[in-house]
Amino acid sequence: MTDQPTPPTRTRGVRPLLSKAVDDAQFARPRLALVSLGLLCVLILGGALMPVPYVIERPGPAIDVLGEYQDEKILVIEGAETYPTEGELMMTTVSVDGGPGYRVTPVEVIAAWFDRTKQVLPREAVFPEGQTREQTTLNNTAAMSTSQQGAVAVALEELGIEYRDVVMVAGVQEDGAAADTLEGGDVLVAVDGRTAADVEGFRSLIAAVPAGEDVPLTIRRGGEEMDLQVPTADVDGTARMGVILSAGYEFPMDVHLAVGDIGGPSAGMMFSLSVYDELTPGALTGGHAIAGTGTISEDGTVGAIGGIRQKMVGAADTDAEFFLAPSANCQDVVGYEPDDLQVVAVSTFDEALTATETIAETGSAEGLPTCEDVTAK
Rank of each mutant, 00 (worst) to 15 (best):
G13F: 15
Q26D: 15
P30V: 02
P30D: 09
L32Q: 13
S36F: 12
V42N: 08
I44V: 00
G46A: 08
G47L: 02
A48D: 14
V52G: 00
V55G: 12
P61C: 04
L66I: 12
Y69T: 03
D71S: 03
L75D: 00
T82C: 00
M90L: 11
V94Q: 09
V96R: 01
V104Q: 12
V109S: 04
R116W: 13
V120M: 02
L121K: 09
E124W: 14
F127I: 01
F127Y: 15
E129D: 14
S145G: 13
V169I: 08
Q173R: 00
G176A: 05
D180T: 15
E183R: 15
D186G: 08
D192K: 10
A196I: 09
G201A: 06
G201C: 08
A207S: 13
R220G: 08
R221A: 08
D227L: 08
Q229C: 06
V230R: 00
P231L: 11
T238Y: 11
G242Y: 01
G248C: 03
G248Q: 08
I262W: 04
S272Y: 02
L279G: 03
A291V: 06
A304M: 00
G306R: 05
I308D: 01
R309N: 03
Q310D: 10
D319Q: 01
A320T: 10
E321L: 02
A328Q: 00
A328R: 02
G335N: 11
E337Y: 03
D340I: 04
T348I: 01
D350I: 05
E351S: 02
T354Q: 14
E357M: 06
A360D: 09
S364M: 06
A365G: 01
L368V: 09
C371T: 10
D373Y: 05
T375N: 12
